[in-house]
Amino acid sequence: MTNVEPDLATVPETVGAAGAPHQIHVELGDRGNHRVPAGEPDGVIELANLEVFYDKFLAVSGVDMLFGSKEITALIGPSGCGKSTVLRCLNRMNDLVPGAHVFGDVRFHGVDMYGPGVDVIEVRRRIGMVFQKPNPFPKSIYDNVAYGPRVTGMKTDNMDDVVEQALHGAALWDEVKDKLKQSAFGLSGGQQQRLCIARTIATSPEVILMDEPCSALDPIATAKIEDLMVDLAKTYTIIIVTHNMQQAARVSHRTAFFTAAADEHGQRTGRLVEFDNTGKIFGNPADQRTEAYITGRFG
């Protein structure tokens, strides 16, 4: 990658040749345009005029988005642009941040997620989350996966089956089937992250949020998680925050580019710049800032 300003047209190919040792599941030749059906997606989560404050600091403003069902949506942008903040609004993890306030509409199948009578536990069961650093519980592999169904009081005929299915779903079963009772901390970082994914899908969510899920992993473990994401997108809606633009280009159907702009008081507020098919964002972005970011001129 000596080329500081690579020709736009060659970006995906360069990535494919140099950065990905594994089989890439999506054709990059037509820049992923075929992955998305034409027109508006079949929406799962809708954001309208989203604003997030941390105390008096406006972190994100004016975000309107529609997340498509069984698609992978990537949120990209420079540090501090509010993409993680937006992600954490989607299953109300921002509730845990003292001083965080969310305004605007966050709708899940049309239901206001922040409305009265909404049980945050039910929200999080349906919209799971995988974190930046693998965070398995200091328990056995089995208990890690069984944790969600147990604490949410899910009615299961056979917990063993639930655990096995979830581990199959996270492509981890073959590696751990003989040591389910061993501590999750004996697993490698990549395995731990797949365990966290298994733990999430054990509660049968509809949406999985991923906050830079590969940033703590080596390239091979990253490749496995990316393969897994493409697989999971057949069943689940996936929304991923990533700093890795190649990753966004490799796995996502749609990409949203955020950036932060300072107001007259010097406060930086994150805004959504462009949200479109991944092929369009990386091939022919409408906004100059998007183009500058993906070509490495800023951010």
Binding site: M93, R124, P136, Y147, V151, T203
Partner: peptide, 14 residues
């Protein structure tokens, strides 16, 4: 670590 609590909350635990 806070990450463990977050993991638990994200799975729907109170």
């Amino acid at each position: 670590p806070l990450a463990l609590r977050q993991g638990s909350y994200a799975l729907g635990a109170n």
